[in-house]
Design a protein around this nucleic acid. Sequence first.
DNA 1: GTCTATATCGGGATAGAC
DNA 2: GTCTATCCCGATATAGAC
Lengths: 227, 227
Amino acid sequence: MIQHAPSHMGDNKMKTAERILVTALDIFNQQGESNVSSVEIAMELDISPGNLYYHFKGKEVIVAALFELYQEQMRAIIDAPSKDADTALSIEDFFYYLYLIIEKNHLFRFLYRNPTDLTDKYPSVHKGFIKLMAAQQRCVTELLAAFEEQGTISASPGQCQQMVEIIGLVFSQAGNYYSLKGHDINDDEYLYKSLSAILFALLPYIKVEQGELQRLQEAIVNRAFSE
Amino acid sequence: MIQHAPSHMGDNKMKTAERILVTALDIFNQQGESNVSSVEIAMELDISPGNLYYHFKGKEVIVAALFELYQEQMRAIIDAPSKDADTALSIEDFFYYLYLIIEKNHLFRFLYRNPTDLTDKYPSVHKGFIKLMAAQQRCVTELLAAFEEQGTISASPGQCQQMVEIIGLVFSQAGNYYSLKGHDINDDEYLYKSLSAILFALLPYIKVEQGELQRLQEAIVNRAFSE
DNA sequence: GTCTATATCGGGATAGAC
DNA sequence: GTCTATCCCGATATAGAC
């Protein structure tokens, strides 16, 4: 399971194909997909370039496989709340939900590092992105609508749409923004800054008691979500 | 003057060095800096690769020169309001100011297309980015503080800081976000969506009469800023 | 200032032995 | 499944003629 990658790194009992994916993800995240050659991946794994090509016919296939993994894992996260639609979400649950998405994007951050080059180079990945982001927006929109219905937030459909846009922007681009400002993307500080920015944008529309809001704000600032 | 580039394109009276910059900017914006070879730039200009190297010793120097131009023009924009600090800015002026920044970023959008690769490849550009973005944030922060002082907005310093963060995020990343969702970056629709997103984030804190706010909102939606 | 020709280098990709 | 050896190609960069 690639989500447990760190603990398995270098585990030789993993099949070569799986090891390639785990290692590729790691190097891509560190150096950027376009700066990593097939040979480099092979070297890192102490296998030959030929062997790598036996398993994956080029970097393109590796990227596609990684995107597939990302997509599956992201779907699982965004679809979770609607699975048990009977139990209403709290605001805290909602922000934990957002956090899981941000965290997953961080795990696959190479997909967002150089968005335009990546999508130009791999049109199939771009197609997947478009679908996935649309699904994500749909899910968030539904959750906001449910909040509106139960009176947890008070906002018009137009305002909800604006919230969704900002959330999507933060999800996909906050990492690049912090990099550009000179921070280290591998530092996970920006995960909380992202969450905090979203909270700021939604705050004027959230209608719960001050105490609950206070706790949420503190939870984010104190990184209560980190395990 | 490079800001009038479109009308001068192919104007043979321009010096070769200048024509190279104008053309390079255009192709970089279209295809991304990393996907454009020196030879390609030369071909586009109907000059030889050797000739291009006579003027600029490689792509790196071209990129550096373009960033220099960008930096100068951006400085001129962001510093303008503090030049005549005696005349207070209106909210409408402020949004026009934001618009000018967004527009300038759009003109040099290749700098933002693949931020991580670009900054990894050209550390001097990254240094410039860090300084420029810090200056930008400082300017916006000061304007917000002035608004708070004159009662145009009502927000704590912490809230203002959050606003600045969101504004910075939109400035630098909105283009990538819209591309990722499948829209054409050359379409300038996203300029107004960006402005609209910023307005949404600030709205709860703006304390002017409804009529003025209404006009501003309509101005943005109707693209009244486009010339 | 501008051209042609060429040297160099690195990444992608494959053939064939083990 | 894995290795070594090699080929191909595109991009950078330079030399020297005009």
